[in-house]
């Protein structure tokens, strides 16, 4: 059972910027840190909180932009009751949030949504991530590897300057594959190019070892060749292509979907994704993690 979400005032513990677009923010959010499962997200107000004013209680320092922003939980430091978010400063809200400084208090709602589901007996997972979409996968890899599951990582980025979350995977990944669209880091190409190859070789060989695209420095320790499941997060086109390749290879695939969210907890009905039967799933409640065949990713 997934834990009930909490509304928490969280102090910023750390703020780091990576290149011109990405940032990681650490927040002291005890109950969220304790309960969060990989794939879950938080809704964070992009403006810091004002101190409580008796009678007219603590509220955001501004109502514009009004809505909280959804961010996946990227890492958790249970000992320090910290959660980390990996953000990309794209529009107004995320850029305002990117200016946060340690010591400020932000209102965080979470953990929200359904996490990745790993079935008993699964021995080998493949994580397919693109851009900021690697965030929930890093948390997933860390957690599932700690349970003794072999984890292969396949991450893709635009260029070397936008590689993010890659360092963190070296501590637990069995094999790692990095691609960039311009070839300035790792292999040149798209994650789906490598994915096609991995799925093909997994179905013909009995063991695979770190292959040419991998720079993990691990020895040729054998890992189970077959992937029991693919967990994917990233741009919609990448998710769709990944889901199709997984289906063709007969490998179960879970995707973490993105939709504009008014509330993040199931009351506004804005975050809909069509199901094959024409009804709508709520990304914030029924997802964000879906079995790929549950939803129409092009909808």
């Amino acid at each position: 059972m997934v834990a009930a979400p909490q509304l928490q005032d969280a102090v910023v513990t750390r703020m780091e910027r990576h290149g011109s677009h990405f940032f990681t923010i650490g927040l002291r959010a005890g109950s969220i840190a304790r309960q969060a499962e990989p794939g879950q997200f938080v809704m964070i107000a992009v403006h810091p909180q004002l101190a409580a004013d008796s009678g007219f209680l603590a509220i955001s320092s501004s109502w514009d932009p009004l809505l909280r922003r959804p961010f996946s939980i990227y890492r958790v430091n249970s000992a320090e009751e910290e959660i980390f978010l990996l953000g990309q400063a794209t529009g107004r809200g995320s850029r305002i949030l990117a200016a946060a400084v340690p010591g400020q208090v932000y209102s965080v709602l979470g953990p929200l949504g359904r996490p990745f589901r790993v079935e008993p007996g699964w021995k080998h997972l493949l994580l397919v991530g693109g851009g900021a979409g690697v965030a929930p996968l890093v948390f997933a890899g860390e957690r599932f590897a700690a349970r003794g599951i072999a984890v292969t990582v396949l991450f893709g980025f635009r260029n070397a300057g936008s590689v993010i979350g890659w360092e963190a995977t070296s501590a637990w990944a069995t094999s790692r594959y990095l691609v960039t669209e311009d070839g300035s880091a790792g292999k040149k190409g798209l994650v789906t190019d490598v994915l096609r190859r991995l799925l093909a070789s997994a179905s013909t060989t009995t063991t695979s070892t770190s292959s040419s695209g991998c720079d993990c420095g691990h020895g040729p320790a054998p890992t189970p060749a077959r992937f029991d499941a693919i967990l994917a997060c990233g741009p919609a086109v990448m998710l769709k292509a990944t889901a199709e390749l997984a289906r063709a290879a007969g490998v179960p695939c879970q995707v973490s979907a993105e939709r504009t969210m008014g509330c993040g907890f199931g009351v506004c009905l804005s975050c809909v994704l069509p199901r094959p039967d024409g009804s709508y799933a709520l990304v914030c409640q029924d997802g964000p993690v879906f079995a790929s065949e549950e939803v129409d990713l092009s909808g």
Partner: peptide
């Protein structure tokens, strides 16, 4: 009712515009 197709909600200055 299944409701309207997405996008169903867009943020506006200090507000939201919805079409659920």
């Amino acid at each position: 009712r299944v409701g309207n197709p997405p996008p169903r909600l867009v943020e506006t200055p200090a507000g939201v515009l919805n079409s659920i």
